[in-house]
Design a protein around this nucleic acid. Structure first.
Length: 268
DNA sequence: TTGTGTTTTATTGCCTCC
DNA sequence: GGAGGCAATAAAACACAA
């Protein structure tokens, strides 16, 4: 039976015998000397007590031989089918129930150990990931610093340029390049209807910096246009970085967010 | 020796499966 | 409904420092 009440449990504990016939039977089953001695002592206690107040039985640990045999069996198969249980119980001089309980407890111990192992593995991979993350963060900082420096360079260049008249500069370049620029705009807009930024009239641009960016951007796109047919509407160009604020520049490489940059892909 | 923490054996109650 | 598994828990046995 599986269930025992308190009085049943004492009967179930360590193969308590209730009769001399059973005792004789067990002795004939080849129980270990220790175990038989234990049984005898228990039985002596039993006999000295009336059935109504059976002494609280002492738990007895299994001996080394029993534990080794059980461990070996557990290694082979951690579940116990009834036949094997009876066989093991007979061989080791235990009650089938004791064998079943031992397997049950052993499974619980194994599970706990397994959880610890799993935890260890997860922890190790977490630590590795964390290290990766901090390395990326460091690289990110270095790159952000470079962006800042480049931006500062660009600004100082713009200051130097501001000594000349923007309009004048534009006129000069306009007279020199007007024809070619307009043809480039025409070429480019012919390839991409969404390129509103590119088709913006340069005369409306407010600063030489913006103008310079425009030329760089339009030139490069025209050059690219000969090889790249498809332009994404929200492409981020390296030149566009100069339009970022310092803060934006720093956050640009944040690893907390996936980058939203789109890339050019040459026509295959 | 004793207090305390850990391990082992066993019980109980609940759940699932046949 | 019985058998068996599992989680939670009790309690005895054991280990060990103070």
């Amino acid at each position: 039976m599986k269930r025992f009440n308190s009085s049943d449990s004492s009967a179930a504990l360590i193969s308590i015998s209730s009769s001399k016939e059973e005792r004789t039977q067990k002795a004939n089953q080849g129980y270990s000397r220790d175990f038989q001695a234990m049984l005898d002592s228990l039985e002596e206690e039993d006999y000295s007590e009336t059935a109504s107040h059976i002494v609280s039985e002492k738990k007895r640990r299994l001996n080394l031989h029993q534990v080794k045999a059980l461990e070996k069996n557990f290694e082979v198969e951690n579940k116990l089918e009834p036949e094997r249980k009876l066989k093991l119980a007979g061989e080791l001089g235990l009650q089938p129930r004791q064998v079943a309980i031992w397997f049950q407890n052993r499974r619980a111990r194994w599970k706990t150990k397994q959880l610890e192992r799993d935890y260890g593995t997860l922890k190790a991979s977490y630590e590795a990931l964390k290290l990766d993350y901090s390395n990326l963060e460091q690289k990110n900082e270095v790159l952000a610093q470079k962006v800042k420096e480049l931006k500062a360079k660009l600004m100082s260049q713009e200051k130097a340029d501001s000594s000349h008249s923007v309009k004048e500069e534009y006129r000069v370049s306009e007279s020199d390049n007007n024809a070619s620029v307009h043809s480039k705009i025409h070429d480019f807009s012919g390839n991409n209807n969404n390129s509103s930024a590119i088709t913006k009239d340069p005369s409306n641009m407010s600063s030489s910096h913006e103008l310079m960016n425009w030329f760089q951007l339009s030139d490069s796109r025209v050059i690219l246009g000969s090889r790249y047919q498809v332009y994404q509407p929200h492409l981020m160009k390296p030149e566009d970085q100069s339009l970022f604020s310092a803060e934006e520049s720093c956050n640009f490489f944040s690893v907390d967010q996936a980058p939203t940059l789109h890339c050019y892909f040459p026509e295959q």
